[in-house]
Simulated scan of single mutants.
Amino acid sequence: MSQVDVRCYARDGYAVSRSVLGHDQVQSLRQEANRLLELCTRDSDRYGARIEWEVDHLADSDQAGMHGVIRKLEPVSVVRRSRRWRTIRRSPRRRRTSSASRSNSSRTS
């Protein structure tokens, strides 16, 4: 990670790591995200209280196109059981990026 990335992480609370995932992995995760969204909206009795919607944090003027966007899903056990997410979590490339971000952020603290 560059110092610019570290400053962005300190300012925004997240870092963007480009090229960590391949095109096929991104497509697979998009499909999985769509599956989870469908599951959560279809079974709202079970998941409704666990979903934090992005529109609930936006001014009315900023909500266009944001309906159906999940900000947080708690608990994330549904995601943890997902084979697609598990594959990404175990990816050596993702782990290297994660380790680099933790290492750099601890130097700036």
Rank of each mutant, 00 (worst) to 15 (best):
V16M: 10
L29A: 09
L73S: 04
H57C: 06
S91N: 03
V55L: 00
H67E: 14
C40M: 15
D24W: 07
R7L: 09
R93S: 13
R30H: 09
S103R: 11
R90D: 14
Q25G: 14
A10Q: 13
A10I: 08
D43R: 06
V26G: 10
R86N: 12
I70R: 01
W85R: 01
Q3L: 09
K72W: 11
E38M: 07
L37V: 07
R18L: 14
R107S: 11
R96E: 15
S109C: 15
L37W: 05
R93P: 02
S2L: 00
R46G: 03
N34M: 06
T41H: 02
A64S: 11
S19T: 08
A15M: 15
R71A: 05
S61F: 12
R71I: 02
W85C: 03
A59Q: 07
R102W: 06
S106F: 04
R80W: 04
V78F: 00
H23T: 12
V79T: 12
L36P: 00
H23N: 13
N34P: 02
R102L: 08
D5H: 04
A100M: 07
T41Q: 13
V16G: 04
E52C: 12
S101T: 06
R7S: 09
R96G: 01
R42D: 10
L21S: 01
M1S: 15
S2R: 01
V4Y: 13
D24H: 12
A10T: 07
R83H: 06
Q31G: 14
D45G: 04
S61Q: 14
G48A: 02
R95P: 00
R94D: 04
V26H: 12
V16S: 06
S28R: 13
R81C: 08
Q27G: 03
R46T: 11
Q27M: 08
N34R: 13
R102A: 09
L37S: 10
